[in-house]
Design a binder for these strands. Structure first.
Lengths: 133, 133
DNA sequence: GTCCCTGCAAAAGTTTTGCATTGCG
DNA sequence: CGCAATGCAAAACTTTTGCAGGGAC
């Protein structure tokens, strides 16, 4: 069954399509600069600012996720919008996906303890990947 | 009963002591720049590089924690070394402490699923603080 | 024609390093 | 004296913005 492609609520340009495709096809949580380099391999004329603004636009509209999961300071992007967590190898910096799904009771407990209206959470495990352990 | 003050495994200078005290007395997870400003209120001659290097040194030796929990890009520091999590208000940026303690089974499950040797995790909840909700 | 988008460049914010000087041991 | 620590300044890196030109509608 074919998935109906819903129109995105902003103008789709070749540049934005290329950025979205690059993020969706990546499996390594690339930074903005890395995405820029990959997109430029296909659209050599594109500028970094265009890639950067496209990433922010896609994040705002929920098409991709922005993560602060690396050991470096740069933000990383994830084309997998479904709820999931991450794990980072503290030796080589690799970032993997994890599906844990904290039980909803956890958020309720935090809400009760802090008085916050809890919307969600970011969870990143730390460890050594099979190659580094 | 007095707690025996163990000597730190690196040279303690007045500057480093002031930085450590500033972080330990802070309850708002300040950035390096904010810590610099607070320390300078006491030691007006200190330079930012000294504060910055002291923070890195203290992090390396486990005296304080470095967090990537803010909505801005700057790292934040926490004088509370005991295991705990955080919650950030997505409206005003406030950062609070949370004590949830994921059950150990979670880490074991992640280790089994990913093949990583899991050392720990970073968990930050998102929501609206009582003042912003 | 109007408005949004792009590309280039520069500015801003944060982190990191080079180096001469200082000062403790 | 010897070496680590400091303070200043500059470099490096990432993020963000200004602006002129160009294309879509």
């Amino acid at each position: 069954m074919a998935v109906t492609a819903e129109p995105l609520p902003f103008r789709q340009t070749p540049q934005r399509t290329a950025v979205l495709e690059a993020v969706r096809h990546a499996d390594d949580h690339p930074t903005a600069l890395e995405i820029y380099r990959r997109v430029r391999a296909v659209r050599s004329g594109i500028g970094f600012a265009t890639v950067y603004r496209a990433l922010n636009l896609l994040v705002e509209h929920g098409e991709i996720l922005e993560l602060q999961v690396g050991e470096d300071t740069a933000a990383r992007y994830d084309g997998n919008v479904a709820s999931h967590d991450h794990i980072r190898c503290t030796a080589c910096g690799a970032i993997g996906d994890v599906h844990l799904d904290l039980e909803p009771a956890a958020s309720r407990r935090v809400a009760a303890a802090t008085g916050y209206a809890v919307d969600g959470y970011e969870l990143t495990f730390l460890g050594r990947c099979p190659g580094c352990a």
